[in-house]
Design a protein around this nucleic acid. Structure first.
Lengths: 342, 342
DNA sequence: CCGTATTTGAGCAACGTACATCAAAAATTG
DNA sequence: CAATTTTTGATGTACGTTGCTCAAATACGG
């Protein structure tokens, strides 16, 4: 009827409770034969250790460190706020959340923070990754120390980390192209791409996906090479204004980075009828207004709340060595039109 | 340092453990003055009862019944499969999941199943709602019996249930219109709407949202009244074939219900150049293929896995009387183009 | 076959809460 | 103020697991 307990296992295996405990917790001093007998009994009964009772007994609290970029970036600030919320909720589940802010795009600083998390006795570390040799080194030290590592939003190139939680940026770029291509249907002309920096991984991936689809499906629309605005509104404004002046046949714009405010400023300055279709990332007060005013046509967005929640679930499962449902980490890129704004 | 326990509360309130227990669990025989003293101590310490220890002690298992429509509808079959998966995982959290299948679009059958869940001693019921007086009646009986009710995928009109988990179907309809309108840009003609049944709220709401946006933003495109195919492929095929024959100016089709297989069959029979733009719901093997072949242009999708997970979280919080984060139940409508298929 | 090393068993306290019982203290009533 | 009722305290057991100690049983080497 109800779940089998260690006592049931002991009875079936015909050993004492102590022996079951020794096997269950990997203590030594148990002959292989006996170990096998115990394991067989567990399998036969379908025994699963009651994690809650176990945690209660050993007074376990999960110590999870988040290491995220500091700075003016609105996305990261939202992330930090989100973590405050989760910290309160998580306490009920014996989970203590610690947040460390590091300078953005600074591999050395990030690596130092990772080492510090380890020194502070973290059970797991969730990080927004910056690509760097030092970071990869620090991560493998963490893993060597049996500390779980999950990357959030921005991944580390393969292998190193245990899991990644975030959107598929190649797919996001493809989505942008699919939408923009269809929105520009029937018009002849070219597409302008605005990026933040080709040094960050998400932007590279978005561009890749965007160009894949544009070439394959909408080859009648020409593609201008991306301009890099460093996610700064003023530079985006200047660059795009320049592009629009020098190319009179721009029918679509994709901004795969930040600085949307400047993008809108540039668009506002040209004739309404001549305005291109526009797809951008990140739903903010500004992009929302631009959608409503019909200046932007679609905004792609990732749900930070869900990302943090997923990261926590995955972290706990990693620590408890419970199998992880692959779908947990997959965050879908949300698409907002003026018609489905929340 | 660590969380305050009942013992701490007792010490601070200067009463015995028994008295704290009486207050905490609402047993009587405690003077109001003393009750207040205990509550004050709990507030002062920020005491929160350790739910895991409590559950361990009282041997609580959460008994959650899912009542979902039976039948050929692929969406509902996926739901059922999803529940199998969650049932295994949930057992680890002292949660027993029971699934009852009922005939689709049948208020009476649903109401009966709800009463049966109550008789079976459910702590909470998660249902895919069908609008009907009997259902509303059965739901209020459940609530009177302190059984929590959460609606999934399709809601009940206000008030009755405790929570709704699913996408915002009005918004989904609006999204469909926003996409289809933009996809049909430049073409003159009318839009056909295919529904399952106007007895289920999700279909009603999708239609509502769709027509809102169509009238407001794409009034140059005429709207045909919806045909109801009962989510059955054969009927959808027949109905749409008929609509297409009688109206030569169909430039777009929105299927807000099931039976996409029939829809595709009908479209396959007409000339490629004359085919309308198509937006449907539910990503399946068939709709995926239709996207890839360019027969469908967009598929709207709700993530059943996340919905079930959210429903379980909310259910537990309801039962434990823990405050619920409003965002937990909000499921974003995913949009798939051929370009971002997973 | 004895001595030593290893393996196993038995028992207990703890984790934070629930719940029951009985006795003691306090409040209320007549 | 005694009798009664109500409120409070003290104590014990339980939930399923951890982790400890100490003794008993068993295996192993010479």
């Amino acid at each position: 009827m109800s779940r089998p307990t260690v006592n049931d296992v002991a009875r079936v295996a015909n050993v004492s409770l102590s022996t079951v405990d020794r096997v269950l917790n990997g203590r030594d001093g148990v002959r292989k034969v006996t170990q096998e007998r115990v394991r067989a009994a567990m399998a036969q009964l379908g025994f699963e250790r009651d994690i809650m009772a176990a945690n209660l007994s050993r007074q376990r609290i999960y110590n999870i460190h988040f290491v995220i970029p500091d700075g003016p970036n609105s996305f990261m600030r939202n992330l930090a706020a989100e973590l405050e919320t989760h910290a309160r909720i998580a306490r009920r589940d014996r989970t203590e959340i610690t947040v460390t802010l590091v300078p953005p795009f600074d591999g050395r600083g990030l690596a130092a923070a990772l080492r510090q998390a380890r020194a502070a006795g973290a059970d797991g570390v969730v990080m927004v990754a910056t690509e760097s040799a030092e970071v990869r080194q620090a991560v493998s030290e963490l893993r060597a120390a049996e500390i779980q590592v999950v990357t959030l939003v921005s991944d580390l190139s393969a292998s190193a980390r245990g899991y990644f939680v975030g959107i598929d940026n190649v797919s996001a770029g493809r989505t942008a192209a699919g939408l923009l291509g269809r929105f520009c249907q029937g018009r002849a002309g070219r597409i302008a791409i605005v990026a933040g920096s080709m040094l960050v991984r998400d932007h590279v991936e978005r561009r890749l996906g965007f160009e894949q689809v544009m070439h394959a499906e909408f080859s009648e629309l020409g593609l201008l090479p991306p301009v890099e605005g460093g996610d700064e509104a003023a530079r985006v404004d200047a660059l795009l204004t320049n592009v629009l002046r020098e190319n009179s046949d721009i029918v679509g714009v994709y901004n795969l980075g930040g600085g949307n405010h400047g993008l809108r400023a540039a668009l506002d300055r040209i004739d309404v009828a001549a305005r291109p279709r526009v797809v951008v990332h990140e739903l903010t007060a500004q992009t929302r207004a631009a959608l409503q005013d019909g200046v932007f046509d679609a905004v792609l967005q990732q749900d930070i709340h869900k990302e943090v929640a997923s990261a926590l679930v995955i972290m706990r499962n990693l620590i408890e060595a419970v199998p992880i449902d692959a779908r947990t980490g997959l965050i879908h890129t949300e698409i907002f039109l003026r018609d489905n704004l929340p």
